[in-house]
């Protein structure tokens, strides 16, 4: 079964990590991902830019409205997601736990089974070996 794992955390805290801390975290996450890739369980992975770069289109009776910012203002923001192929919830939870260990501090992982998944055309990878997200940090 395919699941999405959505990663939530306070982006202001992430943005206050030092470059070294961010890079170290990315390395730890990469280790978890490598294991999943070898096991043939990992699909697309994304880290999102800050919610300040987000735009929301809201449907309304007439023309839809374009709003600046993320869909919902929350204490923890959607910062990234994984697509994994797992036998059951226990297996996904184990992966989420590994991700949680690799990631310091607070945060939440929402696990959602997928109804439809179309991998689409191959997309160019973005900065996979880059040092996390430089400039996000102090």
């Amino acid at each position: 079964m395919l699941y999405a794992i959505f990663c939530y955390n306070d982006e202001r805290v992430i943005g206050s990590w030092s470059k070294e801390e961010d890079a170290a975290c990315m390395v730890r996450l990469r280790n978890v991902q490598d294991g999943l890739t070898k096991a043939g369980k990992l699909g697309p992975v994304a880290r999102l830019l800050p919610t300040t770069a987000a735009t929301t289109l809201r449907k309304s009776a007439g023309e839809s409205i374009v709003l600046d910012g993320p869909f919902a203002e929350t204490k923890e923001q959607l910062l990234g997601f994984y697509v994994v192929d797992c036998a059951d919830l226990d297996e996904v939870l184990a992966i989420a736990r590994d991700l949680a260990v690799a990631n310091p501090g607070t945060g939440s992982y929402e696990i959602r089974p997928m109804a439809i998944f179309d991998p689409g055309v191959p997309m160019p990878a973005l900065d996979l070996d880059g040092p996390g997200m430089p400039g996000l940090n102090r």
Partner: peptide, 15 residues
């Protein structure tokens, strides 16, 4: 990241 480093970042962000 150690607990202290994480707490430091949290305090910085909340400041």
């Amino acid at each position: 990241m150690s607990d202290l480093a994480w707490i430091g970042a949290t305090i910085t962000a909340a400041r």
